[in-house]
Measured scan of single mutants.
Amino acid sequence: NQASVVANQLIPINTALTLVMMRAEVVTPMGIPAVDIPRLVSMQVNRAVPLGTTLMPDMVKGYA
């Protein structure tokens, strides 16, 4: 099973992602693959992402 990107903290809307905000976890359903974490750094979320939420492609501006 491939790990997905999960929020390590509450990420407010329009926040630029940093490594500290994300962790890799095997979850269902799968979200953004953990291998993409370096690519996500400095991209912004388009909604508030609660702690423990799996990041989906439509939550990150410019990802999809």
Rank of each mutant, 00 (worst) to 15 (best):
52 G>M: 08
54 T>F: 02
55 L>R: 00
31 G>S: 02
57 P>A: 14
39 R>C: 10
23 R>Q: 04
61 K>H: 13
2 Q>G: 15
2 Q>N: 09
11 I>H: 01
30 M>L: 15
7 A>W: 02
61 K>P: 06
64 A>K: 11
9 Q>C: 06
60 V>P: 01
13 I>Q: 12
17 L>N: 00
45 V>S: 04
37 I>V: 11
52 G>N: 12
32 I>H: 00
7 A>N: 02
36 D>E: 10
39 R>D: 04
60 V>G: 01
32 I>W: 02
46 N>S: 14
7 A>D: 01
53 T>C: 05
6 V>E: 02
15 T>W: 06
20 V>E: 06
43 M>Q: 04
43 M>D: 03
10 L>I: 13
47 R>H: 14
9 Q>W: 11
21 M>G: 03
24 A>E: 11
17 L>H: 00
55 L>N: 01
60 V>N: 00
18 T>N: 03
6 V>N: 02
4 S>H: 01
26 V>K: 03
50 P>D: 11
17 L>Q: 00
23 R>I: 05
2 Q>S: 14
17 L>Y: 01
19 L>V: 12
29 P>D: 08
13 I>V: 08
51 L>D: 10
11 I>F: 01
53 T>P: 00
18 T>L: 07
49 V>A: 05
24 A>M: 07
24 A>Y: 10
64 A>G: 15
23 R>G: 07
48 A>K: 07
60 V>T: 02
42 S>K: 08
26 V>Y: 11
16 A>Y: 05
33 P>K: 08
30 M>P: 09
49 V>I: 11
33 P>F: 04
49 V>P: 01
46 N>L: 15
3 A>H: 13
58 D>Q: 11
25 E>D: 14
50 P>M: 10
25 E>S: 06
59 M>E: 03
11 I>L: 11
6 V>A: 05
8 N>K: 10
34 A>N: 06
63 Y>G: 04
19 L>D: 03
27 V>S: 10
34 A>E: 15
6 V>T: 08
10 L>P: 08
9 Q>Y: 11
49 V>S: 02
52 G>Y: 08
10 L>Q: 09
20 V>M: 13
57 P>I: 07
43 M>C: 05
11 I>V: 12
20 V>D: 06
25 E>V: 05
17 L>A: 00
30 M>F: 13
7 A>T: 12
30 M>Q: 11
25 E>L: 04
33 P>I: 08
23 R>V: 07
16 A>C: 06
15 T>M: 09
10 L>C: 15
63 Y>V: 03
57 P>S: 13
20 V>S: 14
25 E>T: 05
41 V>A: 08
3 A>L: 09
12 P>Q: 12
29 P>E: 14
1 N>P: 15
30 M>H: 10
47 R>F: 10
16 A>I: 07
12 P>G: 13
22 M>N: 00
64 A>H: 11
61 K>W: 09
59 M>W: 13
52 G>E: 12
38 P>W: 07
5 V>Y: 01
13 I>P: 11
14 N>A: 09
21 M>L: 06
22 M>E: 00
33 P>N: 14
9 Q>K: 08
4 S>A: 05
41 V>Y: 08
41 V>I: 11
56 M>G: 14
59 M>Q: 10
39 R>S: 08
32 I>V: 12
41 V>T: 13
50 P>G: 11
43 M>Y: 14
56 M>R: 05
57 P>G: 13
40 L>K: 00
58 D>Y: 10
56 M>W: 07
23 R>D: 04
43 M>W: 12
13 I>D: 06
6 V>F: 02
14 N>T: 05
6 V>L: 11
38 P>L: 07
51 L>V: 10
56 M>L: 08
43 M>E: 04
6 V>G: 01
36 D>C: 06
12 P>R: 08
58 D>I: 06
24 A>L: 13
53 T>S: 07
4 S>V: 03
33 P>E: 11
54 T>L: 05
41 V>C: 07
25 E>M: 06
31 G>M: 02
23 R>M: 08
35 V>Q: 15
14 N>V: 03
3 A>C: 15
43 M>S: 06
42 S>W: 12
4 S>L: 01
25 E>N: 08
58 D>M: 14
27 V>R: 07
40 L>T: 01
18 T>P: 00
29 P>I: 09
11 I>R: 00
19 L>R: 05
14 N>W: 08
19 L>G: 03
32 I>Y: 02
59 M>V: 08
42 S>M: 11
9 Q>F: 12
54 T>G: 03
62 G>M: 14
12 P>I: 07
60 V>L: 09
23 R>S: 07
9 Q>V: 07
10 L>T: 10
45 V>F: 01
23 R>P: 00
60 V>I: 13
11 I>M: 06
52 G>R: 06
21 M>F: 07
46 N>K: 14
44 Q>W: 12
49 V>W: 02
12 P>T: 10
20 V>P: 03
27 V>K: 07
29 P>Y: 14
39 R>G: 06
26 V>H: 13
56 M>T: 11
37 I>G: 04
39 R>Q: 05
40 L>M: 12
53 T>K: 08
19 L>T: 05
12 P>S: 10
2 Q>H: 15
4 S>K: 02
64 A>C: 12
55 L>I: 15
11 I>N: 00
57 P>E: 10
27 V>H: 05
57 P>C: 14
31 G>V: 02
8 N>A: 15
10 L>E: 13
34 A>F: 10
35 V>E: 15
37 I>C: 05
17 L>D: 00
62 G>I: 05
59 M>C: 05
39 R>Y: 14
47 R>S: 06
22 M>C: 03
53 T>R: 11
5 V>D: 01
27 V>I: 08
6 V>H: 02
42 S>Q: 06
26 V>C: 15
5 V>M: 02
3 A>D: 15
64 A>S: 15
29 P>H: 07
18 T>E: 04
5 V>L: 04
30 M>S: 13
15 T>Q: 10
34 A>P: 06
5 V>I: 13
30 M>A: 06
61 K>V: 11
38 P>C: 09
16 A>W: 09
12 P>N: 11
17 L>T: 00
50 P>W: 14
28 T>E: 15
19 L>C: 04
28 T>F: 05
45 V>N: 03
24 A>R: 05
35 V>P: 07
61 K>I: 12
8 N>L: 07
27 V>L: 09
38 P>V: 09
36 D>S: 07
52 G>C: 13
21 M>P: 00
53 T>N: 14
24 A>K: 08
63 Y>I: 04
59 M>P: 00
47 R>I: 06
54 T>Y: 02
15 T>F: 08
10 L>H: 11
63 Y>T: 04
32 I>Q: 00
17 L>V: 03
6 V>P: 00
36 D>M: 05
10 L>S: 11
38 P>R: 04
1 N>D: 15
63 Y>M: 05
2 Q>F: 11
9 Q>P: 01
